[in-house]
Amino acid sequence: MAQTDITATNFLQTRRSVPAKMLGLPVPNRAALMPLLTAALRVPDHGKLEPWRLLVLEKGALARIATLATARAATLGYDAEKTAKGSAQFETGNLAVAVISSPKPSDKIPAVEQVYSAGAVCLSLLNAALAAGWGANWLSGWPSHDAGFTNAAFGTAPHETVAGIIHIGTPTNMPPERPRPDLGAVVEWVAQ
């Protein structure tokens, strides 16, 4: 039987994100962020393609990106509510890491598996931040799915997408626990 790491198992069974709007200062400095980024990149990466890249967004960059989101929303004709929702995470953020999915040409590794690897980077970074005592939240929103915005904000190439934007900071508040999935409703045991 495998030996259980009780601390890690307990963390994974009880971890919870902190809403980005409940993250304040201080944020991890570069030295504190490096171990989190190192942990984030220890994900399944079939073929060692490294089909992702990370952009660490500090306060000034987030402010610039918020302005780009507002301008892009105007270009697209979005209403005030959708515009505000799209720019708010950048306006109010103090530190975020954009995880860019950047699939590489491969005859062996399907592009979809490479995209999944980028998603794994998002979750690994989120969990690394939480395990280190920070608050963290994985966001996306319409700006993350708009190629015109992502190209201007993050320099994405045509084959790249935003897997997620991980906000990291000090929790200013904790939301109440939310209902979790009912294992009986989502797990099926297949014996044959």
Score class of each variant (00 low, 15 high):
L49H: 03
L49Y: 02
R15W: 04
R42S: 08
A61S: 11
A61Y: 01
V18K: 11
V43C: 01
R16Y: 02
R16N: 13
G24R: 02
V18Q: 09
A69D: 02
K48H: 15
Q13P: 07
L62S: 07
S17R: 03
E58M: 10
L23P: 01
L37Y: 01
L68Y: 08
D79Q: 10
L41A: 11
T70K: 13
E81A: 14
V56G: 02
E50L: 00
A80S: 13
A69F: 06
V18C: 13
S17M: 10
A88S: 15
A80I: 07
M34I: 02
A20K: 04
F11K: 06
A66M: 03
D45C: 04
R72S: 04
L62F: 08
A20P: 00
G77H: 05
P51G: 04
L49C: 09
F11T: 13
A32Q: 15
F11Y: 09
S87H: 08
L12D: 01
P35K: 02
K21P: 06
A32Y: 11
L55F: 06
L25Y: 02
Q89H: 12
P44Y: 05
A84S: 05
G24N: 05
S87C: 01
A20Y: 03
K59W: 03
R16D: 06
M22E: 14
A88H: 05
G60L: 02
R30G: 14
A63G: 03
A80K: 14
L57Q: 07
G77P: 12
V18S: 06
N10H: 14
E81S: 07
S87L: 00
R15M: 12
R72K: 09
L41P: 00
W52N: 07
A61M: 08
G47T: 07
T38G: 08
A32F: 01
L33R: 03
A20S: 11
R16H: 15
R42D: 08
A8H: 03
P19W: 09
W52D: 00
L36A: 11
R15N: 02
Y78I: 07
L57K: 01
T70L: 12
G47W: 02
L37S: 05
G86A: 05
A88F: 12
K59Q: 14
S87G: 03
